[in-house]
């Protein structure tokens, strides 16, 4: 088993990877517990997704979140899940910022119903995006090993 020169960095990236994966999988699980239409209404509130795409998106996105979140936690070929999660989080974050700037008082939809967009949700999702970008960066840039 290889050992890493910078152990604190290794453990930090590992912890971030597990946290980002777990949060992503948990967000998907919370949505799966409710009817898909409830999540679809949350997406519809942003007014950026055409109606015909709402049902497929609301049905598949939570499953994908759980699957990709678990995949990232497991750590197998981490480049794929970390990139997908980072891209998704960028889209989600951009949509939230757009809604906030447009003065829309809507739910974020991140963790199921009852989570209105606020400075707190932007900070939370922004932090998650930053963590995900760090994980993605280190997934592509192998940490230096001693053996």
């Amino acid at each position: 088993m290889p050992t890493y020169r910078n152990k604190p960095l290794y453990w930090t990236v590992l912890a971030l990877r597990v946290i980002v994966g777990a949060v992503f999988a948990y967000a998907g699980y919370l949505k799966l517990r409710e009817p898909w239409a409830l999540f679809a209404m949350g997406i519809d509130a942003y007014h950026i997704v055409p109606y015909r795409f709402l049902e497929p998106l609301a049905r598949t996105l939570p499953v994908a979140e759980v699957a990709i979140g678990l995949w990232l936690m497991v750590g197998l070929w981490p480049r794929i899940p970390s990139t997908v999660i980072s891209l998704l989080l960028m889209v989600f974050f951009a949509a939230m910022v757009h809604a906030k700037l447009a003065g829309q008082q809507i739910d974020c939809g991140c963790f199921g119903p009852g989570d209105p967009i606020s400075k707190w949700t932007l900070l939370r999702d922004g932090s998650l995006l930053a963590a995900s970008l760090v994980v993605t960066w280190f997934a592509f840039r192998r940490l230096p090993r001693t053996s």
Partner: peptide, 19 residues
């Protein structure tokens, strides 16, 4: 839980049907 203001009826119908 609160629904988004003025939701689409077809979506509300799907939600109620699920419950």
């Amino acid at each position: 839980y609160n629904l988004p203001s003025a939701p689409d009826y077809r979506l509300l119908k799907s939600m109620i049907d699920a419950y």
